[in-house]
Design a protein around this nucleic acid. Structure first.
Length: 580
DNA sequence: TCTATATCACCC
DNA sequence: AAACGGGTGATATAGA
């Protein structure tokens, strides 16, 4: 049953603004059009005061990639709209799976999809350049920019009209759209906040990294001679293994396999390889130049909501500090008097699978606090009194199976991955299927439905139609409900927390980084955990609480990732030696 | 010289 | 033929 839109006004809006890496946006102008009254507003920078339209629940605001509009709201000191729809989110949801990554769903692409006339892409590019030049703009340039902005509003309005039947198809599609719109407001707030960075140390790393690289190569490459400058040369390495008589695996294409796994495996038989492996790992990836840090020392970059087909955010790994190697997270440091908390859902995907499949046995395993050991017990692999300490190896094997199952891993891969005999891996997988029958029935039902062309859907209506006849990966269909519902849970928690005024720095898929005064961080953490638990119950059902874990960082400490501290200390020590 | 593809490393 | 989900991005190599 289609729904009627209950709004007194429907304002379609578009801001032009200047966004520099790591900085807050600078507003250039706003154009908006109310589809109910037909009224237009045009505001040039400097002429802004109060919002030119009401922002209460009787007014619907519509944008494309709307988080950018709300960022401009924040810059102008305006409150968030009570009701909004982001047509980018709706267009990607409705066409999810149709383009298979071959088309970026820009406003122009979405318009073209519905047969709406637009300006040419190169004309748009020229106007963007004029805006990003930063002004000052002549009177006629101002008119051009406002005209261009209005053209985008017209296209967005046409798109809204074209998409309307799909938006109001049911209470679920409209409710879902409003919920996703609400999340774009949370995104704007998080992007505005950003993540506090230790800028002096960042600069030391940026300045000193080339020297460190050279030192490391000079130290170690002497015995190999495979580097030219600081770059590893495959041909030289080929000569080295030839010289030393070390047999080396090749890829199907015939080139040497140079991945870390191969190095690790070869180093077992040929220990002379180990230092080279270490060196390659250390030099590996340190991308710091693109890290987007503003003048105020905060890492700010687009969250890119709904960027993946599961509805997850997809921020740039180069610009976002949580996209870099984990050891670089030690650049995260609260300012004096401030504290940070990294709060993550514990084994979120297992909990989602258990709850949504109504598998009581799997839920019991989850709530035990150690789903891996619980599986080992439920499957009769260890006695009921077994512990992490008493049956370490069995627990490890059980863990490999439990985690692999969520991705649709085969027994063969599990055997390789966990170092099991293939027969044992097969046996464990069968035991998993027998122990968690409801989970498997649910998972296979999702997979088959998807393969048959049915639409998969999360609790609050994010969808994916994998498409008939295309080469869909069945394992992707199997994992999708867990990942997509996890993303939805994250969105709900972000909405609730940002609306409460909690300072959320960023989401990290199954975790949130929140910030507060050092003397009240416990209160912030408590609110965060409550919101995250509530979000899990909203998505999974009453009583299904996904537990959370907290890492606290108070000034003058820095964030430390367990897996990265050693590397961090090593690099910092070398910076000291080199006098950086 | 530019672009497409393959490979690898990293994140959750 | 492959057999581990969702991604970004750097780099090397091949081909137009």
């Amino acid at each position: 049953m289609p729904v009627t839109l209950p709004y007194a006004a429907i304002w379609v809006l578009d801001f032009e603004f200047i966004a520099r890496d790591g900085e807050h946006p600078v507003v250039v102008c706003l154009v908006a059009n109310d589809l109910v009254s037909g009224q237009w507003v045009r505001v040039w920078q400097g002429d802004f005061s109060e919002p030119p339209f009401p922002l209460d629940g009787n007014t619907l605001l519509v944008g494309y990639s709307a988080a950018a509009e709300w960022s401009c709201f924040i810059a102008l000191g305006w409150p968030m709209p009570a009701r909004c729809i982001d047509l980018y989110a709706e267009f990607t949801r409705i066409t999810n799976g149709a383009f298979d990554g071959k088309l970026f769903p820009s406003l122009l692409a979405a318009a073209a999809h519905y047969g709406i006339n637009t300006m040419a892409a190169d004309e748009k590019g020229a106007m963007r350049d004029l805006i990003l030049s930063g002004g000052p703009w002549s009177a006629s340039e101002q008119q051009d920019i406002l005209h261009y902005c209005a053209a985008d509003v017209r296209v967005t309005a046409d798109l809204f009209r074209a998409m309307l039947p799909q938006l109001v198809q049911s209470t679920s599609t409209l409710g879902g759209a409003l919920l996703r719109g609400r999340y774009t407001c949370a995104v704007a707030r998080m992007e505005w906040n950003g993540i506090p960075i230790d800028v002096p140390t960042l600069n030391r790393l940026r300045n000193g990294w080339d020297d460190i690289k050279r030192d490391l190569v000079d130290d170690i490459d002497r015995q190999y001679g495979v580097y030219e400058g600081t770059t590893f040369v495959a041909a030289r390495f080929a000569a080295y293994i030839e010289r030393e008589g070390i047999p080396w695996p090749r890829l199907p294409t015939g080139t040497l396999a140079l991945d870390d796994d191969t190095f690790r495996e070869r180093a077992k038989s040929y220990p002379a390889i180990a230092p080279l492996r270490e060196l390659r790992h250390a030099l590996g990836k340190m991308r710091l130049n693109s890290l987007a840090v503003g003048q105020d020392g905060r890492n700010r970059t687009g969250v890119m909501p709904f960027g993946s087909k599961t509805g997850r955010n997809q921020p740039s790994n180069a610009r976002f500090v949580f996209g870099t190697s984990r050891w670089l997270r030690s650049l995260i440091q609260p300012a004096p008097g401030r504290a940070l908390a990294y709060v993550d859902w514990v084994s979120q995907e297992i909990a989602i699978a258990a709850a949504l499949s109504c598998d009581e046995v799997l839920w019991e395993a989850y709530t035990s606090g150690d789903p891996y050991m619980a599986f080992a017990k439920q499957a009769g692999l260890v006695p009921p009194e077994a512990t992490k300490a008493s049956h370490k190896a069995e627990r490890q094997r059980a863990k490999a199976i439990v985690l692999g199952v969520g991705y649709g891993m085969s027994a063969d891969s599990m055997a390789v991955q966990a170092g099991l005999h293939i027969d044992e891996a097969r046996d464990l997988l069968v035991r998993h299927k027998l122990t968690y029958r409801k989970f498997w029935a649910w998972a296979m039902q999702n997979q088959n439905a998807g393969l048959l062309g049915f639409i998969l859907q999360t609790t609050f209506g994010w969808t994916w139609q994998a498409g008939l006849g295309t080469n869909v990966n069945p394992r992707s269909l199997l994992n999708w409900p867990m990942q997509a519902n996890g993303a939805e849970m994250m969105r709900l928690a972000c909405c609730e927390l940002t609306e409460q005024g909690i300072s959320v720095c960023c989401p990290v898929h199954d975790a949130l980084l929140v910030e507060g005064p050092a003397d009240d961080i416990d209160g912030v953490v408590a609110a965060t955990r409550i919101a995250m638990e509530r979000a899990s119950e909203l998505v999974l059902g009453k009583g299904y609480i996904v537990k959370t874990d907290v890492d606290l960082v108070t000034w003058p400490n820095r964030y430390a990732d367990e897996a990265g501290v050693e590397m961090w200390d090593r690099v910092l020590a070398r910076l000291d030696v080199r006098g950086w």
